[in-house]
Measured scan of single mutants.
Amino acid sequence: EWSVQQVSHWLMSLNLEQYVSEFSAQNITGEQLLQLDGNKLKALGMTASQDRAVVKKKLKEMK
């Protein structure tokens, strides 16, 4: 059960800090993070497919 802050730290740990402000603005918590798919990541401004791939891979490892 991650807070928005913990999601931000997680993104930073993946060197994806450029997305922290948008994820925070949308109040993405750990629970919501686990529901994100490629389209939702795109909607959050994650347009680079490599970045989405990293996030999806890491989320899969956490589930």
Score class of each variant (00 low, 15 high):
residue 60 K to Q: 13
residue 56 K to F: 15
residue 46 M to G: 02
residue 42 K to D: 10
residue 21 S to C: 10
residue 28 I to D: 06
residue 19 Y to F: 09
residue 25 A to P: 03
residue 62 M to L: 15
residue 55 V to G: 01
residue 23 F to C: 04
residue 41 L to E: 05
residue 41 L to M: 12
residue 13 S to Y: 02
residue 10 W to D: 04
residue 4 V to S: 10
residue 31 E to H: 06
residue 26 Q to S: 10
residue 59 L to K: 03
residue 59 L to V: 11
residue 46 M to P: 05
residue 22 E to L: 09
residue 57 K to A: 13
residue 52 R to Q: 13
residue 28 I to V: 11
residue 54 V to H: 10
residue 29 T to D: 15
residue 56 K to G: 08
residue 35 Q to A: 13
residue 8 S to V: 11
residue 54 V to W: 09
residue 3 S to N: 15
residue 40 K to Q: 12
residue 54 V to R: 13
residue 1 E to L: 10
residue 32 Q to F: 00
residue 47 T to G: 08
residue 56 K to S: 12
residue 23 F to W: 07
residue 32 Q to D: 13
residue 35 Q to T: 13
residue 38 G to E: 15
residue 48 A to C: 15
residue 1 E to G: 14
residue 37 D to K: 06
residue 3 S to E: 08
residue 27 N to Y: 03
residue 34 L to W: 04
residue 35 Q to E: 14
residue 36 L to G: 04
residue 30 G to L: 06
residue 31 E to C: 07
residue 51 D to K: 02
residue 59 L to T: 00
residue 48 A to H: 14
residue 37 D to G: 02
residue 30 G to H: 06
residue 6 Q to D: 07
residue 53 A to H: 10
residue 33 L to F: 05
residue 42 K to N: 09
residue 55 V to L: 13
residue 17 E to G: 14
residue 63 K to D: 12
residue 45 G to K: 06
residue 2 W to H: 03
residue 4 V to K: 11
residue 18 Q to H: 07
residue 52 R to W: 01
residue 7 V to K: 01
residue 18 Q to I: 06
residue 48 A to T: 12
residue 46 M to Y: 01
residue 60 K to H: 10
residue 63 K to V: 11
residue 49 S to M: 09
residue 14 L to D: 00
residue 45 G to C: 01
residue 27 N to L: 04
residue 20 V to A: 12
residue 31 E to W: 02
residue 3 S to D: 13
residue 51 D to W: 02
residue 15 N to A: 05
residue 26 Q to G: 05
residue 44 L to K: 04
residue 57 K to W: 07
residue 38 G to C: 13
residue 10 W to A: 03
residue 34 L to T: 07
residue 27 N to I: 01
residue 53 A to I: 10
residue 55 V to Q: 02
residue 24 S to L: 13
residue 11 L to S: 02
residue 57 K to D: 15
residue 37 D to C: 06
residue 4 V to N: 10
residue 9 H to R: 12
residue 10 W to F: 12
residue 38 G to H: 09
residue 26 Q to K: 12
residue 40 K to S: 10
residue 1 E to Q: 14
residue 9 H to P: 00
residue 1 E to P: 04
residue 23 F to L: 05
residue 57 K to E: 14
residue 1 E to N: 15
residue 26 Q to P: 01
residue 10 W to K: 06
residue 13 S to M: 09
residue 15 N to T: 03
residue 47 T to Y: 10
residue 28 I to Q: 04
residue 42 K to L: 09
residue 42 K to G: 05
residue 8 S to L: 12
residue 42 K to P: 03
residue 40 K to W: 02
residue 43 A to P: 03
residue 19 Y to D: 09
residue 16 L to R: 02
residue 58 K to C: 10
residue 33 L to K: 06
residue 19 Y to G: 10
residue 6 Q to W: 00
residue 18 Q to Y: 06
residue 20 V to G: 05
residue 26 Q to R: 11
residue 23 F to K: 04
residue 39 N to V: 12
residue 54 V to M: 14
residue 8 S to D: 03
residue 53 A to V: 08
residue 40 K to P: 03
residue 5 Q to R: 09
residue 35 Q to D: 13
residue 21 S to P: 15
residue 17 E to L: 01
residue 28 I to L: 04
residue 15 N to M: 01
residue 54 V to K: 15
residue 63 K to C: 14
residue 49 S to V: 13
residue 26 Q to T: 03
residue 9 H to I: 12
residue 62 M to A: 07
residue 24 S to N: 14
residue 41 L to Y: 02
residue 30 G to P: 04
residue 51 D to Y: 03
residue 35 Q to S: 12
residue 24 S to T: 14
residue 49 S to P: 15
residue 46 M to Q: 05
residue 3 S to G: 11
residue 21 S to R: 14
residue 19 Y to A: 07
residue 32 Q to Y: 06
residue 7 V to R: 00
residue 3 S to H: 01
residue 30 G to C: 00
residue 40 K to F: 05
residue 30 G to T: 01
residue 36 L to R: 02
residue 7 V to A: 00
residue 33 L to I: 07
residue 6 Q to C: 02
residue 19 Y to P: 11
residue 52 R to M: 07
residue 54 V to F: 13
residue 30 G to R: 03
residue 63 K to I: 05
residue 41 L to G: 03
residue 46 M to I: 10
residue 22 E to S: 14
residue 47 T to D: 14
residue 36 L to C: 09
residue 20 V to T: 10
residue 27 N to G: 15
residue 57 K to T: 13
residue 42 K to T: 13
residue 5 Q to K: 13
residue 2 W to V: 01
residue 15 N to D: 09
residue 33 L to N: 06
residue 28 I to T: 04
residue 23 F to V: 02
residue 18 Q to F: 01
residue 43 A to V: 07
residue 63 K to G: 10
residue 44 L to F: 03
residue 26 Q to H: 14
residue 12 M to S: 13
residue 29 T to I: 04
residue 14 L to T: 03
residue 4 V to R: 08
residue 9 H to C: 14
residue 10 W to L: 07
residue 9 H to T: 13
residue 59 L to C: 03
residue 38 G to T: 15
residue 22 E to V: 11
residue 58 K to S: 14
residue 12 M to F: 02
residue 34 L to D: 06
residue 33 L to C: 05
residue 46 M to V: 14
residue 43 A to D: 14
residue 55 V to M: 11
residue 14 L to Y: 02
residue 21 S to W: 06
residue 62 M to K: 05
residue 30 G to A: 06
residue 30 G to S: 03
residue 41 L to T: 04
residue 9 H to V: 07
residue 45 G to A: 01
residue 47 T to M: 12
residue 33 L to W: 00
residue 38 G to A: 13
residue 9 H to A: 14
residue 22 E to F: 01
residue 53 A to F: 08
residue 55 V to F: 13
residue 55 V to N: 04
residue 43 A to E: 14
residue 3 S to C: 03
residue 46 M to T: 03
residue 14 L to E: 07
residue 53 A to K: 13
residue 56 K to E: 14
residue 58 K to T: 08
residue 48 A to E: 15
residue 37 D to R: 03
residue 8 S to M: 11
residue 9 H to Q: 15
residue 61 E to C: 06
residue 43 A to S: 13
residue 16 L to W: 02
residue 6 Q to E: 13
residue 51 D to E: 05
residue 25 A to T: 08
residue 40 K to R: 13
residue 5 Q to V: 11
residue 27 N to A: 09
residue 29 T to G: 12
residue 47 T to R: 10
residue 56 K to L: 15
residue 15 N to S: 10
residue 25 A to S: 13
residue 50 Q to F: 07
residue 55 V to S: 01
residue 17 E to R: 08
residue 7 V to D: 00
residue 58 K to M: 09
residue 18 Q to N: 13
residue 46 M to S: 05
residue 58 K to Y: 09
residue 58 K to N: 10
residue 49 S to I: 07
residue 50 Q to P: 09
residue 38 G to P: 08
residue 42 K to W: 04
residue 2 W to E: 07
residue 43 A to R: 12
residue 11 L to K: 04
residue 36 L to T: 03
residue 32 Q to H: 08
residue 2 W to S: 04
residue 21 S to D: 13
residue 18 Q to R: 14
residue 27 N to C: 07
residue 36 L to K: 05
residue 49 S to Q: 12
residue 46 M to H: 08
residue 34 L to K: 07
residue 39 N to I: 09
residue 37 D to W: 00
residue 63 K to A: 06
residue 40 K to V: 01
residue 5 Q to M: 13
residue 60 K to V: 12
residue 5 Q to F: 05
residue 23 F to Y: 04
residue 37 D to T: 11
residue 59 L to D: 07
residue 31 E to V: 08
residue 56 K to W: 12
residue 31 E to K: 12
residue 29 T to V: 02
residue 17 E to N: 14
residue 44 L to W: 02
residue 31 E to Y: 08
residue 16 L to D: 00
residue 11 L to C: 04
residue 53 A to G: 09
residue 40 K to E: 09
residue 1 E to F: 15
residue 37 D to S: 10
residue 59 L to Q: 04
residue 10 W to E: 04
residue 30 G to D: 06
residue 50 Q to I: 09
residue 4 V to F: 09
residue 48 A to N: 15
residue 10 W to I: 11
residue 61 E to M: 07
residue 30 G to K: 03
residue 45 G to I: 00
residue 8 S to A: 13
residue 47 T to Q: 10
residue 38 G to I: 11
residue 49 S to K: 15
residue 22 E to M: 11
residue 33 L to M: 05
residue 54 V to E: 08
residue 41 L to C: 04
residue 29 T to S: 13
residue 31 E to F: 03
residue 41 L to D: 06
residue 14 L to S: 04
residue 52 R to C: 05
residue 53 A to E: 14
residue 44 L to M: 09
residue 45 G to N: 02
residue 10 W to N: 05
residue 34 L to A: 07
residue 40 K to N: 11
residue 34 L to Y: 08
residue 15 N to F: 04
residue 63 K to T: 11
residue 9 H to F: 10
residue 51 D to S: 03
residue 33 L to G: 05
residue 3 S to Y: 02
residue 24 S to F: 09
residue 26 Q to A: 12
residue 59 L to Y: 05
residue 29 T to H: 04
residue 25 A to R: 15
residue 39 N to G: 11
residue 43 A to G: 10
residue 24 S to D: 09
residue 14 L to Q: 07
residue 16 L to K: 02
residue 57 K to N: 14
residue 27 N to E: 12
residue 41 L to S: 06
residue 12 M to W: 04
residue 37 D to V: 01
residue 26 Q to C: 05
residue 22 E to W: 00
residue 58 K to Q: 12
residue 40 K to H: 08
residue 34 L to I: 10
residue 30 G to N: 00
residue 16 L to E: 01
residue 42 K to H: 06
residue 16 L to H: 03
residue 8 S to R: 08
residue 13 S to D: 09
residue 10 W to P: 03
residue 52 R to E: 04
residue 28 I to E: 05
residue 47 T to E: 13
residue 4 V to L: 11
residue 4 V to M: 10
residue 52 R to H: 06
residue 46 M to L: 08
residue 59 L to E: 05
residue 61 E to G: 07
residue 34 L to H: 06
residue 50 Q to A: 14
residue 47 T to L: 10
residue 58 K to F: 08
residue 7 V to S: 03
residue 60 K to E: 15
residue 33 L to A: 05
residue 20 V to L: 07
residue 62 M to T: 04
residue 1 E to T: 11
residue 16 L to C: 03
residue 1 E to W: 09
residue 17 E to A: 13
residue 23 F to T: 08
residue 53 A to Y: 12
residue 5 Q to I: 12
residue 22 E to R: 11
residue 41 L to K: 04
residue 28 I to H: 07
residue 18 Q to L: 07
residue 40 K to G: 13
residue 10 W to Y: 05
residue 33 L to Y: 01
residue 40 K to M: 08
